[in-house]
Simulated assay, not measured.
Amino acid sequence: MQQPDDKHTNENQHTNPRLSSTTPSATASRKQGIICNLPAPWIPYAELMRLDRPAGFYAFYIPYLIGLSYGACLADPIPSPTRLSTLGGIFFIGCIILRGAACAWNDNVDQEFDRKVARCQNRPIARGAISTTQGHVFTAALTLAGAPLFIFLPVECSYHAVPITILFGAYALMKRITNYPQVVLGFPFAWGILMSCAALEIHPLGERFRVPTLSLFVANILWTMIYDTVYAHQDIKDDVKAGVKSMAVRFADSTKTLASTLAAIQVGLLIVVGWQADFSLIYFLGTCGGSAVALGSMLARVDLKEPASCAWFFHRGFWYVGGSIVVGLFGEYLARLQGLEVPQVGAFI
Rank of each mutant, 00 (worst) to 15 (best):
A277G: 07
L270K: 10
G331Y: 02
L329W: 04
F279I: 13
G317W: 03
A259R: 10
Q276R: 14
I325T: 15
G290A: 12
F330S: 05
R336I: 06
G268C: 13
F313Q: 07
I265F: 11
S260V: 08
F330C: 05
C288Q: 00
A264N: 00
L285C: 11
K305M: 11
S297E: 10
L295A: 06
F318L: 01
G268K: 04
L258Y: 10
Y333W: 05
C288L: 03
I325G: 07
E332I: 07
W319Y: 15
S309V: 05
L285W: 09
S309C: 10
Q276H: 09
S260R: 01
V293W: 13
S297L: 14
T261C: 14
L329P: 01
S260M: 10
A294R: 03
R336G: 15
G317H: 01
S260H: 00
Y283S: 07
V272R: 07
Q266Y: 05
L334V: 15
C310E: 03
G289K: 02
V302L: 05
C288W: 00
G339T: 06
Y333N: 03
S309Y: 08
G289I: 13
L281Q: 08
L258Q: 02
V321D: 00
E306N: 15
R301Y: 09
F284Y: 11
L270D: 00
V273A: 15
Y333P: 02
S280M: 07
Q266S: 11
A263S: 12
G331S: 06
L281N: 13
A294C: 08
S260G: 15
I271R: 04
E332Q: 08
L299K: 01
A308N: 13
A311N: 10
L281I: 15
Y283C: 11
V272A: 15
S260E: 04
L337A: 15
I282H: 03
Y333K: 05
V267P: 03
S260T: 13
A277D: 01
S260Y: 05
L270P: 03
G274V: 14
L269F: 09
F314H: 02
D303V: 14
D303L: 10
L299H: 02
G289P: 12
G296R: 08
L299A: 01
S280E: 07
C310P: 06
K305N: 14
A292V: 06
L295C: 04
G323F: 03
G331D: 03
C288S: 05
A300D: 10
F314M: 13
E306S: 11
L329M: 08
S309W: 11
G268W: 02
W312I: 00
T257P: 00
F330V: 05
W319C: 05
T261M: 12
F313W: 15
G323N: 06
